[in-house]
């Protein structure tokens, strides 16, 4: 039965969304890129999370290494050691990366990054050029490393016995979670305590409210419409930065009180060399300086770790600064 609902998809619409790449290369657009260029693109767009050599930073995925470790304790699963198809790399980088600025790379850049990831896994030389033409010539080392779900043969025939009594002679505790102690602290209880203190001690609340007021005259009244616009712009920044209550350092520093603050002074954040130099020179994040930084981060400060292309619209820059003032200052 047909309901006659919906409308026919136009070819342009299908072309815009139907961009997944099949293991046999179907869907790859024309283009090419070499590992050497890929290294540069990778340094700008990917290295902040994945490391300069695709070795991974913090908890972010490692993309290189680990060859021959899959049968070891704690195997290292990377593109080189684990991924079966190169099409998956191209497809994922093209559609989902960089984190926080997805679908911003050109086809040639994606070919170059893919070539660099191959190079960082010692699978090609640094002058290797990857294109839609030679794509299928590359075979990843673990291509044959997968089998289709075999639980029906290996597990279901034996997981079918339910002993009721005398199932074992003795029982010993062999491991305790309390020994490792990795369970998060219960914040729920703390929150309740804080809430209680607040209601029981109105005086303290008044003091807290009074403090920012002393600084307030220096700050012009905020344009709340602009603040709201800035909140939307800040989405571009959120993958690396937090601001407001509970803000802390992530890939980038926490941004509370950043407007008017000295440069490079957020506690506990590891700044780049040029940022440290600016801090030593006593620079301040005035609104003007922030605006210039946001417009073109790497032009403003060569060597900054902030791998963000910059905000093109002046209105966006003004809005995000207003947002930072409202939420962090």
């Amino acid at each position: 039965e047909k309901f006659g609902l919906g409308r026919e998809a136009l070819p342009e619409e299908i072309a815009a969304w139907n961009v997944d790449i099949a293991p046999d290369g179907t869907g790859l657009p024309a283009g090419s890129g070499d590992a050497f260029t890929g290294e540069e693109v990778f340094a700008e767009a990917c290295a902040i999370c994945h490391g300069d050599f695709a070795e991974g930073r913090d908890n972010w995925p490692k993309l290189a290494g680990g060859e021959g470790t899959l049968a070891d304790k704690d195997p290292l699963k990377t593109v080189g050691s684990y991924w079966p198809y190169l099409s998956t790399v191209w497809d994922y980088v093209n559609r989902s990366m960089p984190f926080g600025n997805a679908q911003s790379l050109t086809a040639d850049e994606v070919y170059a990054i893919t070539a660099y990831i191959l190079y960082s896994n010692d699978l090609v030389d640094d002058d290797f050029v990857l294109s839609n033409e030679n794509f299928m010539d590359v075979e990843l080392p673990n291509a044959e490393g997968f089998i289709i779900d075999d639980r029906a043969e290996t597990e279901y025939p034996i997981f079918n016995v339910a002993c009721m009594s005398d199932c074992k002679e003795s029982v010993e505790i062999t491991m305790r979670a309390a020994v490792l102690d990795v369970t998060p602290e219960d914040e729920g209880t703390e929150a309740e305590e804080v809430a209680q203190t607040e209601t029981e001690a109105p005086a303290a609340e008044e003091v807290a409210a009074a403090e920012p007021a002393e600084e307030a005259p220096a700050m012009a009244a905020l344009d709340m419409e602009l603040v709201a616009a800035g909140e939307k712009v800040f989405k571009k920044c959120k993958s690396c930065h937090t601001v407001g209550e509970g803000a802390k350092n992530k890939t980038g520093p926490g941004l509370n009180m950043i407007v008017g603050a000295p440069v490079g002074a957020v506690d506990g954040f590891k700044y780049s060399k040029p940022m440290k130099a600016a801090a030593e020179a006593g620079q301040t994040w005035t609104e003007e300086e922030l605006a210039a930084f946001f417009a073109a981060p790497r032009k403003y400060m060569k060597g900054t770790k902030m791998s963000f292309n910059g905000l093109k619209k002046e209105a966006d820059i003004a809005a995000v600064i207003e947002f930072l003032k409202n939420n962090g200052n």
Partner: peptide, 15 residues
């Protein structure tokens, strides 16, 4: 492929 696959003792993985 890279996620939601299950690596067995000999290093092969179920998908």
């Amino acid at each position: 492929t890279s996620k939601y696959t299950d690596t067995l003792e000999d290093g092969t993985s179920r998908k």
